[in-house]
Amino acid sequence: MKEELQKRVVKGPDGVEFEVEPLRDYYCEALPQVERPAYAQIIEDLFNWARSESIWILGFGTGCGAIEMRPLMTPRFDAYRYGIQWRPTPRQANLFVISGYLSVKTLKRVIRSYEQMQNPKYVVGLGSCTINGGMYFDSYNTIKRLDQYLPVDLYITGCMPRPEALLAGFLDLKKLIRAGKADGANHYAENFAWYKANQKQVIQDWDMPDYNW
């Protein structure tokens, strides 16, 4: 385990010594929970409408596809007119766009960031690489199938997809959310052990807590 996760005694600025156990104090031991729908369908529909109209993307680029985000943010394609915007931290975001090939090293950071995002949250896989490995199918260091490691709500094909394809994908995602079908986060919670086993199979040096938020 990493040194920063070891149990240790820390001296505070006031001179008082106290014990810190990062895994217990900084992270959550509780597993992710399935989010139940609201008590009445009409309320749930209202929630889903609101969710679909406020898609906040985590500003995290993994592969070539990250370059497509810039034209979307700027006036030419202007994704903001659809209520889509980018956020700097996982806590404020609800959509994780995996923008292309994902190396094992990045996958580790992606898992941590994904788990730190709050429900409701969605994952979109961008480009061939997230679907079947794309042209990185024979790479020693990239995964070939994103849905083995994270629940994917929608894929956008292409290598790389144009910004228009992303916009179309976002509109499709909105439809899924409004129909209540974008429930990847619940799938993750329900099949947590399966996802963790897959993740640990490729991440050789697993040195982080099993779940964190």
Binding site: V104, K105, K108, I131, N132, G133, F137, D138, S139, Y140, N141, T142, I143, K144, R145, Q148, N198, V202, I203, Q204, D205
Partner: peptide, 28 residues
């Protein structure tokens, strides 16, 4: 660059990249 790499160093020519990728990463 790699983290926790245990196989043959990947730039050695006797390292079979395709075989390693097939064995290690799930395919669709």
């Amino acid at each position: 660059i790699l983290e926790g790499w245990t196989a043959t160093p990947p730039y050695r020519r006797d390292f079979d990249t395709l075989k390693y990728a097939e064995e290690t990463y799930a395919e669709r």
